[in-house]
Design a binder for these strands. Structure first.
Lengths: 352, 352
DNA sequence: TCTCTTGCCGAAACCGGTTTCGGTGGTATC
DNA sequence: GATACCACCGAAACCGGTTTCGGCAAGAGA
């Protein structure tokens, strides 16, 4: 069915077959196909033609043993992490492997529950990956230190405290959060709370920075800032703490969608209605947000694209480009949904 | 830092180094380490000792070129699939790669948006995987036909219409669904609906079989069966259609959690309350189900364990065990939550 | 016309393993 | 005591590529 034109039975074509077909030696075929300069155009054409005729594709492991490159990107998923990133994993993986595939690379996935660094070391030692994508970067990330010292290429999804030697792709989340503040302030809110996530991760500081910038720009107080809300339960707890203050917020910004959904429960217990008494905007773009009542306004991240870009950046890093040239910042897109409004505070509605 | 004891500088130890260290030839080391019978115990001990001293680990790609095995499991995720399985992907992947790791294998992930079979063929052609895990099996699955013909080992997560030559791991979902029917019937429900998912996939028929068995056992009619509910919207549509009948159901069983959540909206529009006027049980165990009001009763699947088992089965399949010996059926665990009750129909409550 | 480059390619070594083949020494058999 | 057999290991081929090295022929310069 496939229609392979193997020179001999059903075996896959080897470089020897190509050499025979083209009437040159296998060494020459190798150099021709890999673009070495000391091959004439005519010979190169004969090699590529013969390769195409036979459907030749070099065997990755065979090249790996000489070149030391296996043309695979590594990704280690940490099962101990809180699962805020779970919903995106499929999109992200698809983007990564698709980006790798366009260059003929593959994606090697490993998981680590405890000894994360050991997992990386094993993959390096056994040459299962030429470089790594590091998701969920921490402010001071041990993986960065380790890979830096080992001289193994890597690219961050997120940023790092010390960007020296780091290539990265990230979302301009500070701008998004600043925008969120200004958006709510424009609607008349004067008491805007921010509920952050994990303090150890870089995203949290960056989002807080944006919040503080927005608050300053709007001339509002920054006394309603909390952290540590990672899921629905902790998000509810944070909301409860804030709503119980003497001068409670009328609007919330959450660093994480899933945590924001905890506000619904906290609000119900106090007979406050989101979209009327309270406004809330979050960040991530998880599918669940679209199904709450009212739906959750959020800054959505395109994780498929993130995977695509990270694969490209990492491959270029492995090929030797300078990390300083491999840094990209993309934007989150605002999904304007019901939860962002609080009719009590709308210009058309009640008082300020 | 790592403390490798490489015989020469920082280079990783090769089989030559081990041979030198043990005072035997590299061929003998290879045979000793791979358990060939024609090696004396004494020599084998010297080889393993030397290997341990040097921290030797064979280079996968080097073995691959001779043995034809790369010691990697392949997984192709189809991005075009509806995203009912997304929430589990992280757990599932973790299980798979962990299961692979225990045998020293790795997991190669690729994605396919259109040409799924082509993706498999490419991975086979380039020997990026020794076998495949096929998730979301269809009743008549083209991947099975292709891999069967190509002679490439595979293992199904789910079952197949023609089990010939198929190894698989699956959940005994028929029993779960049958139990669900009996559970609801015991609570006094006489009108029990079943809302299935994708008819092309095997899971749907198996779940329907269980439902019908349960209905027959309870002596109830099977006129409330619908299919095609894959997400919240289609789940709501199915619920609407059923509730609008002249003799509507008082209890629902959904084949998919996510679809079951669509019942909440349909019920609200009719002023029916789940946990009071209506009972619902679903299947999957998605995290979202725990946060609805009332929480969704469901048969939860341990996807991490599924990954673990599938990795083990596939590796054994690749090593040559007969597919008939590589079939496992696990059980879903019932999460008894609020949505399963309908106080109107409880023995303590109203009439039958 | 002769030498010196230079472009281009073949031959062979090499990468790190696995596998085949043959030979050695020791023990059992006649 | 000669032969057959067996357990065991060294030597070398092999897997499918890449890379080094050297030589040949053509063109440039004297």
């Amino acid at each position: 069915m496939g229609g392979r034109v193997g020179s001999r039975g059903d075996r896959r074509a080897t470089i020897q077959d190509v050499a025979r077909e083209a009437g040159i030696t296998k060494g020459t075929v190798s150099r021709a196909l890999n673009g070495h300069p000391d091959i004439s155009d005519a010979t190169r054409a004969r090699a590529t033609d013969a390769a195409a005729r036979l459907g030749y594709r070099p065997l990755g492991s065979a090249q790996a043993i000489r070149t030391g490159r296996c043309r695979a990107l590594g990704l280690v998923i940490e099962t101990s992490e809180h699962d805020a990133h779970r919903p995106f994993l499929a999109e992200f993986l698809a983007g990564l492997s698709q980006g790798a595939a366009t260059e003929g690379w593959t994606l090697t996935v490993a998981s680590a529950s405890e000894d994360t660094l050991g997992t990386y070391e094993m993959l390096i030692e056994e040459r299962k990956a030429d470089g790594f994508v590091l998701p969920r970067t921490r402010r001071d990330d041990p993986r960065v230190a380790m890979l830096r010292e080992a001289g193994v290429p890597f690219v961050l999804f997120g940023r790092h405290g010390d960007p020296e030697g780091c290539a990265w792709f990230d979302i301009d989340m500070a701008t998004a959060m600043r925008e969120a503040v200004l958006r709510l302030a424009r609607d008349g809110h004067r008491r805007i709370a921010f509920v952050g996530g994990s303090a150890a991760h870089t995203y949290n500081g960056l989002r807080e920075d944006g919040i503080r910038a927005g608050l300053a720009e709007a001339g509002l107080a920054d006394d309603l800032i909390l952290h540590g809300a990672l899921d629905r339960d902790t998000g509810e707890a944070a909301a409860t703490a804030l709503l119980d203050r003497t001068d409670p917020p009328t609007a919330f910004i959450y660093a994480i969608d899933l945590a924001a959904l905890g506000l619904w429960r906290a609000a119900r217990k106090r007979d406050l209605r989101i979209g009327e008494d309270l406004a809330v905007i979050a960040y991530d773009g998880t599918p669940e947000g679209a199904h709450s009542e009212p739906p959750l306004a959020t800054y959505a991240v395109d994780h498929h694209n993130a995977g695509l870009r990270l694969a490209d950046l990492l491959i270029r890093r492995i090929r030797g480009e300078a990390p300083e040239d491999l840094r990209e910042l993309a934007h989150a897109t605002y999904l304007d949904r019901g939860s962002a409004r609080a009719s009590k505070y709308q210009p058309t509605g009640g008082t300020t």
